[in-house]
Design a protein around this nucleic acid. Structure first.
Lengths: 224, 224
DNA sequence: GCGGGAATGCTAGTATTACTATTCTTTGCA
DNA sequence: TGCAAAGAATAGTAATACTAGCATTCCCGC
């Protein structure tokens, strides 16, 4: 019934598939926890290796560098999100209802899931909220994009953009609207916690308010 | 007529006011150019000092660290944006028209300005688009916020949020909408250049399309 | 039990970064 | 002219982001 979901992440994201070995799984598992605890800037492969009880070069055998590890985790999130989103909307016929469900998924946090026992989804979601934009805001983005490393993000956005087009074929910016919603959902939650003067979203009800704010926004923009 | 605009940036952003000395001005001037050329990660105080013909400790006497320098530049941008925005809307009475003008300013790039001869506004704008979010996405954000270092961003958002409330007093998320617009305007331009599959905004007409996409969005959301 | 290959580990680096303590030099001005 | 204070230079440290090269272990078929 609940088989482990084997998410597709592009081969080029890692040097060696971390899901192919115990050490690789530990790297991913502990990287998520440490990024959540100390943030991207303070996180180093040395600290990670120390915590796992391995050595720096061993970690480098799986990931080219820490930015690539972040991109791997972020891609995992995007793929997982799309999987969840498709699951939530399959068999739902009315286009408007499908879009509403998709937006609810898109703005909802990840929660821990038994099918991925070593991934702390809640921690990963916090990492995504605070750090995911650093996965593309850097000098190597063009090269990484040429190598197809952002395919999962693009696929996710395309999927939701297509739902928007189904509801309102005349709307001209479905992709821009979706990428705005995705990024804004992270940002509003971050602001609610750290810069509350920049949003009405309250930390205590951040998830519900963000979903409401953005769902309402999308449906008003596409005229329903 | 066109006096140099002396923008207010919080004293705590710098250790010593860079506008108080020739060296300080050079630091700001060249930091903008170098951040634009090489990106935040590759930029270092050592390289900056070398380029200016001074030493690392001298740079550290003006700014605590490079993240604080980025925040200084970003705050300068926020202040400058608010100044521009107020200038564009002063004496305009109809609330809807004021908001429209404000949104045009908010999503328009900075262009070079004779009143600030040593600041390359166009370069600074590119830096803001690609790097400004790194000014708050880090561990020290709470402490910096307590010290009031984000006041200019908050003031800018509040100003525009108030215009929204004037047009539609019933709308519940004016601040969230404004912060979404500000961040999205940078993001869409970045995506247009580096990850074009994530937006309909085309690199060649990025500024005009972004203004249109976001202005349309705001007016639909607040029901005008 | 043995040979071979993959996986992992260890040691020991390099170049650079972020930052600082201390000393030296200039300069404004009394 | 003398002197205090501001500013600049020297010379560091600890940590970071990596890499090279070799040693060890483990599991496979034979």
């Amino acid at each position: 019934m609940t088989q482990p979901v084997r998410l597709q992440v592009d081969e080029k994201l890692h040097l060696k598939d971390p899901m192919s070995s115990e050490l690789g799984e530990s790297i991913v598992e502990q990287a998520i926890l440490m990024l959540d605890e100390m943030g991207y800037e303070s996180f180093t492969f040395r600290k990670l290796a120390e915590r796992i009880g391995t050595t720096e070069p061993s970690v480098y055998r799986y990931f080219k560098n820490k930015q690539r590890l972040l991109l791997y985790l972020t891609s995992w999130y995007w793929s997982w999100m799309e999987y969840r989103l498709v699951l939530a909307t399959v068999n739902v016929v009315p286009a408007e209802q499908r879009l509403r469900l998709a937006l609810a998924e898109l703005t909802r946090p990840m929660v821990n899931d038994d099918t991925t026992p070593r991934i702390d989804e809640a921690a990963l979601y916090r990492v995504v909220v605070a750090e995911s934009s650093k996965a593309y805001l850097h000098r190597d983005v063009d090269e990484e994009n040429r190598d197809g490393l952002f395919r999962s993000y693009k696929r996710l956005c395309r999927t939701v953009a297509d739902m928007i087009t189904e509801v309102d074929p005349a709307y001209r910016y479905p992709l821009a609207l979706v990428s705005t919603v995705v990024e804004s959902s992270h940002m509003q939650k971050y602001f609610a916690e750290h810069l509350p003067s920049l949003t009405e979203v309250k930390h205590a009800q951040a998830d519900a308010s963000t979903t409401q704010f953005l769902t309402e926004m999308v449906f008003k923009v596409i005229g329903r």
